[in-house]
Amino acid sequence: MILAASSIAASSLEGQAAPDFVLKSATGENLRLSEYRGDVVLINFWATWCGPCRQEMPLLDDLYGRYQRVGFNLLGVNIDDDSRRAMQMVQELGVKFPVLFDENKEVSKLYEVEAMPVTVLVDREGRVRHVHHGYKPGYEEKYLTEIRSLLRE
């Protein structure tokens, strides 16, 4: 059982090429990670039953709104078994970043997602630079610093 957690653990993915994937999005398009090469990408794994995810998502949406026009993209990957619940939550929260559905959990396995949420930052060359497991208020400040640093590279 995957539990919501608030701890930071090191990830073996840091420094490696981000595993490529393609998933269907909430708007019906298929979105592939490698097509964002050249942009800084934040991948956020979340689930409808995860309380910290609900707290975190609006803050991530703010980051997306602020930095999208300067080469930043955000992909929210939902891992619920039923994507309809995820669609409902997306509409409730009113987030604007692309939301993708990983019902088969293949992508979450690739990214070693064991607790929720997990936030992965990928640089312009497609390398995983930072991985954050869990969410506590204040983590968004870390994301902000890391995003700004990656955008400047």
Binding site: V22, L23, K24, E29, N30, L31, R32, E35
Partner: peptide, 8 residues
């Protein structure tokens, strides 16, 4: 099972 993006 291959999903095609708009670009592809």
């Amino acid at each position: 099972n291959y999903l095609y993006t708009e670009r592809e």
